[in-house]
Structures are given as C-alpha cells and as structure tokens.
C-alpha cells in the first residue's frame, strides 16, 4: 500500500515547475483575456485600481472554491456551501445586532459557526456513512431554514464602515482587502495541499480511499476535517459578502454553489477526487470572474454570460480529456478500476 502513496507523491511532485500544463494554459488564457478586455472593451480598463477593484465582485466565490477544492479532492462534494455562507453571515449579524458584540468578534463567531456546520456535515458523512452528496443536500435545506428563521422579516444591515471596508475597501485606494485576503488564503491552501502531510492524505484518500485506509490512515478524521475547512471557508465568504453588501440575507449564498463547483472543476480538480491543485483553482476563479465582469461591461446580458460560462466549462474539460489522452470521466474510472480490482475484470470477461 505504501507503493500507491509513493506513486501519488511522485506524480504530484514530478514537475519542477510551480504550474503544470493545465495551469499554465489557464494562466495564458487569463492574460489573453485581461489584455483583450482592456483593449477591446471600452470602460473595462479604467486605471489599475479599478481593474483590481473588479475582483471584489467575485472573490467570495474564490474563497468558497478554495474550501470546496479540499472536499472535492477527497472525492466528496459539499452542496451546503451556499446555505453555510448565508447562515454564517446571519449568525455574525445577529451577534452584532442582538447581543451588541463587537463586529469583528461576531465575525469570528460567524466563521466558527461555519466550522461547526462543516463538522456536522463531516460527522453525518463519516459516522452515519451517508454519501456526501445526499448528506450535504439535506443539511443545505436545514441550514437554509435555520438561516431564514434567525434572519426574521428584516434581516440586519448597515454594519460599521470599518467592517464594510473588508468587502468594499482598498489599501491605499488601490489593492482591495478582499484580494489580499484571497491571496493569503490561496498561498496557505496551496502550501497545505502540496507541501503538508495533511494535503497528501487528502489527495491519497481521494485517489484511493481503500488504500489509504489499509495504510493506517484515519480516513474518517481527514474527511471530516475537509468538511470543516469547507464550512469555515463558506462562512468566511459569507462574511465577506455581508461586508460587501453591508447587509445579510438568508438566501445570499444560493448563487455560490454552481459557480464555485464550475471554478474548482475548471481549475483541474477531478470531480472524483485525488487529482488537482490549488494553483489551478485560483487561475479558474480569476478566469471566470474576470470573464463575467468583462462580458457584462461589454454589454452582454447575464443570460449570455451564464451560457458562455457553461460552454467554456464543457469545452475546457473536453479539451483537457483529449489532450491528456485518458480523460477524467469514465476513462479515468476504467484506469483506476483496472489498477485496483485487477482480479475482477478478467473474471467478468470470461
């Protein structure tokens, strides 16, 4: 079983470049995209400050995507990120408004709530042995109800300006706080997943859960921790959104889910787990985020923008499959199953 781990690590660290082929392609696309928009779309480039400022409109998606990547790398999925983001923000707002706590302490409690919600997800998945998809689908309904109940008829709004700066403000009028937060988180997650033992465990579990179990790994604990991370990041994104809007609503996280899954997958993380890197996800976040802002500024409607995003996802993954020559879908599954249950295949073929 050690062998498997070795092949995984070898594959992961085999490249000397900080970015692999897919990530380099995404980076190139991003550069082309930004340059193209700056030249081709009037109103897109309005000084470096406004260009950086654009990121404020989509970085909460990126924060969720970082946490969701960890879950997807374990081979799971978290459909409750949207409602956790909403609930985390509402808990923060209620502590601030109802109990008159300091806004930053409330924010901390909100993020903590996300961790607890994620932990609940993790426990349901590992202890009750429920499929992640169904467990988080169910908890997303429950968290949504709790959020609506807590928020009441007039959800809190109008936070202090110092807090609103997190989502709306810039350092020296140039670099948005959100961007700084995202860069720090991205570096942290990148190191966590590629350089730490924890990250290798996560990838190993996603690559081959059985092998991980036999190698003595405490698989349930690692899986549970992945959901805690996802919940924490979702709640953090909710708080950034609360600051961006200077308001909270129970439904404000709803739009996060499908877009962030798109970002994670476009970033090269296999939806079956065990493959993918944070650098790719960061590229995908920027690529899709800038694309949406750029297309809207160019005068395309939200509808066209949404359709184009869907088409890009399909084309990108199709190209990736063709280029890599083995695919990420059933072809990969075949490969994995062949490697795994070598005994079974000939038996069935008889």
């Amino acid at each position: 079983m050690k062998e498997v781990e070795n092949t995984v690590t070898a594959r992961r660290t085999g490249s000397r470049f900080p970015l692999d082929g897919w990530e380099r392609s995404l980076l190139a696309l991003l550069v082309v995209e930004i340059a193209g928009f700056c030249i081709g779309i009037p109103g897109f480039y309005d000084g470096i400050g406004s260009l950086l400022g654009l990121t404020q409109n989509f970085l909460p998606f990126g924060i969720v995507a970082l946490g969701l990547s960890v879950v997807i790398l374990t081979g799971g999925i978290d459909l409750s990120v949207g409602s956790m983001a909403g609930l985390g923000a509402i808990v923060m707002a209620e502590f601030w408004q109802g109990l008159h706590l300091s806004i930053w302490l409330s924010a901390l409690l909100g993020v903590g709530t996300g961790a607890v919600l994620g932990w609940i997800n993790g426990m349901i998945i590992t202890r009750l042995n429920t499929e992640p998809l169904i467990a988080t689908l169910a908890t997303s309904f429950i968290y949504g109800s709790v959020g609506t109940a807590l928020a009441g008829e007039n959800p809190p709004a109008g936070f202090p300006d110092s807090f609103n700066a997190l989502g709306q403000g810039e350092v020296g009028g140039l670099i948005p706080y959100q961007l700084i937060l995202f860069v720090v988180l991205a570096i942290f997650f990148s190191l966590l997943m590629s350089r730490s033992a924890y990250g290798r465990k996560v990838v190993m579990i996603g690559y081959n859960g059985e092998a991980a179990r036999y190698s003595g790994m405490r698989v349930p604990r690692v899986i549970c921790s992945a959901y805690v991370i996802s919940g924490t990041m979702a709640a953090l994104a909710g708080i950034v959104l609360a600051s961006y809007y200077s308001a909270v609503r129970p439904d404000m996280g709803d739009i996060l889910l499908l877009t962030t899954i798109t970002m994670v997958v476009l970033g090269g993380v296999s939806i079956f787990g065990g493959e993918g890197r944070i650098a790719g996800v960061v590229m995908a976040v920027l690529l899709l985020g800038v694309l949406r802002q750029g297309m809207l500024i160019a005068g395309f409607s939200d509808m066209v923008t949404t359709m184009v995003t869907g088409a890009i996802l399909l084309t990108a993954i199709a190209i990736r499959n063709l280029v890599s020559g083995r695919g990420t879908g059933f072809a990969l599954l075949f490969l994995r199953l062949r490697r795994l249950g070598g005994g079974k295949v000939p038996e069935a073929a008889e």
């Binding site: 109103g43 309005d46 809007y245 404000m252 809207l296």
Partner: peptide, 17 residues
C-alpha cells in the same frame, strides 16, 4: 435569477459603461 448578486453585477457593468 432573482438574486441581489446578479443585480449588483449588472449595476457594476452599467457604472463601468
């Protein structure tokens, strides 16, 4: 979709335009 985020994105593009 009837979402505030969607409206805000549209506003931002209108401001830029």
């Amino acid at each position: 979709t009837a979402s505030a985020q969607g409206q805000v994105d549209v506003f931002n593009s209108l401001i830029a335009r």
